[in-house]
């Protein structure tokens, strides 16, 4: 009986070790507090993003432009210690998005590109502009080349049609700055 219990205990420990190993293998690497922009289409590569962070009482604790590294990573170290709970992010031509911030973790925000008019909303007006520019060469700062692949085509039109919705407003109700529209 004693031997049986011992065998069971050894097997249990082995299983726990294996499960632990698998969880360790499949875990997300430990990272500093970062915000990663996901769902970036094609070669779309934002350089900077406006962050508005609020605390538990919905007070704005950070309201500043931040650099975007490697087209998708926003260093959120400046948020640490501010007791920031939610972060609203606005990138030019992208609908503003909001996420609940987790400190010392990789936070991800799926973005929606296609705000050609810069009104923080993707609607029929954006679609109409992209339609009118189809097959035309994009100019140097063309908002209609949604995926930034150097041509305005049906992929850009599809992105606008799929992305139709309204972005998050600023937590303080103020309008977004011109340079992030």
């Amino acid at each position: 009986m004693k031997g049986n219990r011992l065998t069971g205990a050894v097997l249990l420990v082995a299983v726990l070790a294996l499960v632990g190993g698998i969880l360790f293998w499949t875990r997300d690497d430990d990272v500093a507090t970062t915000v990663e922009l996901t769902n970036l289409p094609g070669q779309f590569c934002p350089k900077e993003a406006w962050i508005v962070a609020t605390d538990n009482d919905n007070r704005v604790v950070l309201d500043a432009m931040q650099q975007v590294n490697a087209c998708r990573f926003i260093a959120a170290d400046s948020l640490v210690g501010l007791e920031a709970q939610t972060v609203t992010i606005k990138v030019a031509r992208v609908l503003a998005g909001k996420l609940a911030l987790r400190v010392d973790e990789a936070n991800r925000l799926a973005i929606t590109v296609g705000d050609v008019t810069g009104d923080n909303s993707i609607d029929g007006r954006d679609e109409k502009i992209v339609r009118s520019r189809l097959a035309l060469p994009p100019d140097s700062n063309s908002a209609t080349d949604i995926n930034a692949d150097g041509r305005i085509d049906v992929i850009d039109l599809a992105l606008v049609r799929i992305g139709k919705k309204v972005g998050e407003t600023r937590p303080d109700g103020q309008p977004w700055a011109e340079n992030v529209l």
Binding site: N39, P41, A110, V154, I155, L159
Partner: peptide, 16 residues
């Protein structure tokens, strides 16, 4: 100058 826009099965991207 031709393209077919499809959406991925997980609805996260559009590709040619």
């Amino acid at each position: 100058r031709s393209a077919i826009a499809l959406m991925t099965s997980d609805a996260t991207a559009v590709y040619n």
